[in-house]
Design a protein around this nucleic acid. Sequence first.
DNA 1: TCTAATCTCTCTAGTAACTAGAGGTGCAAG
DNA 2: CTTGCACCTCTAGTTACTAGAGAGATTAGA
Lengths: 148, 148
Amino acid sequence: MLTIGKISDAAGVKVPTIRYYEEIGLLPEAERSAGNQRLYGQKAQERLTFIRNARELGFPLDAIRDLLSLSDRPDQSCAAADAIASAQLAAVEARIARLTALKAELERMLVQCAGGMIADCRVIEVLGDHAKCHADHAPTGHLTEVAG
Amino acid sequence: MLTIGKISDAAGVKVPTIRYYEEIGLLPEAERSAGNQRLYGQKAQERLTFIRNARELGFPLDAIRDLLSLSDRPDQSCAAADAIASAQLAAVEARIARLTALKAELERMLVQCAGGMIADCRVIEVLGDHAKCHADHAPTGHLTEVAG
DNA sequence: TCTAATCTCTCTAGTAACTAGAGGTGCAAG
DNA sequence: CTTGCACCTCTAGTTACTAGAGAGATTAGA
């Protein structure tokens, strides 16, 4: 039986994150030692590793929850898991396309900003009036793209 | 003078978002009508458009705050704005690289999942034991990549 | 065996960037 | 004048955690 710190190291997931996963029901409630500390066995560690890998591949926790419930019933068709992964793939592709467009835009801005004064700065200017950019690129509606 | 709904439409930023921007100090406090409703002029609308464009290009609000304070002093060198935009470009490029790797991984998973049972499903298996994947890809430490 | 250092516990609050909803008021058209 | 939409404030929820306080558990060394 491993303490939380050990599976944290083993699975590469931080201690508070593990407790958080338990809290939201992604991990079952851990056994406790006499002194109330969490104890984990092999199965828990595998489950945590699964979660970590899926997170690394960009799956949101809800999708992971679904995948876990699928993997708990190994006799069923693979189709549902396939659907989740496919949706994830499509989302990733969409993000790549979007980011590639942003990259081009940023490069254009920067090329034109050659050490002048703010008054003539293309970075500022382009952001103030995007019409000065090239015309229509997809109007996005929700602005949830975020810098890493 | 325009009401909040009008500049919302004009700038393409939702009404609650505008109030939020005011609350966090990205927009100055708006004038009010006799009946306590917010009123906006040309300048506020331009500022909001600037924010919207920058958000669309993936700038975080903190960076936008910096850019706005730069654009308020047009006599200074463009270097700071350039630096912010460059950092943003680098962040975007890093995200693209990461997502491209994820895409390859997901595609590999899916190719091998050809309608079998969960017990043999590569999607589940790969997530359970990433060693079954190809070896080392960048160990990321923080798992903040999210599906769109 | 004692003690000091390191874990671990719970709980609360904070992060980014909003979104949603409740319950109430302003305003313009018919 | 009333109907109905737009607006107001405030609170709480979202995702996936992270940080910190204050207290108890465990373990390694003297």
